[in-house]
């Protein structure tokens, strides 16, 4: 009734960056970031499920961690946490840079973030290697490895995402102040991985 002639694209701000996704299906607004955030909501439910499972195991157990489990060393994971947390601020600089059309700047900040992520992973591998319990030692050990391992996998995926974006940025003008969905997505994802780690660190090491 209140209709007018329709062109969604022009009304809602269609960006050319969306063209490859849309294929031959013509114009519509760039919904990729919205879709990506919806995906992360779904992904957070995976972690929520595992967290709640952890708390249930813990609530049901007579002693937690089970008697005889060596204490977790907190210094190294603490340093790791600081590194990962600060990397969230670092990656934000990449976003600021590309909004000023500064491709070299965004590349630099992405490289720094990747290096910090890699340091985190290396720290985690070091921790794994020096822990006195293995995956099958007891229920606490199993949940510890699966939760941190799952998170580590997400860190790795984040690093690969940034690597992909860097690889694509070789092409002149692939990312600019107007179109930089890849950079935004990698950043949002990295923040997500960061938040999950803060929760995980609190649950496993502090509580």
């Amino acid at each position: 009734m209140q209709g007018s002639t329709v062109n969604q694209g022009s009304e809602l701000g269609y960006t050319e960056a969306h063209a490859p996704e849309a294929g031959h299906h013509g114009e519509h607004p760039d919904l990729r970031l919205f879709g990506f955030i919806v995906f992360l909501i779904s992904e957070s439910m995976l972690f929520l499920g595992l967290f709640v499972a952890y708390f249930t195991f813990r609530a049901v157990a007579t002693s937690w961690p089970p008697v005889g489990t060596p204490d977790l060393e907190i210094l190294l994971p603490g340093i790791n946490t600081v590194i990962l947390l600060s990397s969230s601020f670092v990656i934000h600089n990449a976003d600021t840079a590309i909004k000023k059309n500064d491709v070299a700047g965004f590349r630099l900040w992405f490289l720094v973030t990747m290096a910090m992520g890699a340091t985190f992973l290396a720290g985690q591998i070091y921790e794994y290697a020096h822990l006195e319990f293995g995956l099958k030692s007891n229920l606490f050990a199993s949940t510890f490895y699966v939760l941190t391992g799952f998170h580590g996998l997400h860190v790795l995926v984040g690093i690969l995402m940034m690597g992909t974006v860097l690889w694509r940025s070789r092409q002149e003008g692939h990312y600019s102040s107007e179109k930089h969905f890849g950079i935004e997505a990698a950043e949002v994802y990295w923040h997500f991985v960061d938040v999950i780690w803060v929760l995980l660190f609190t649950i496993l090491y502090i509580l």
């Binding site: 919806v38 779904s42 992904e43 439910m45 995976l46 499920g49 499972a53 699966v146």
Partner: peptide
């Protein structure tokens, strides 16, 4: 689908 399915995935992984 978005909210419930990931929890099943978690159960399947464990």
């Amino acid at each position: 689908q978005l909210v419930a399915t990931p929890v099943l995935t978690g159960a399947m992984v464990l």
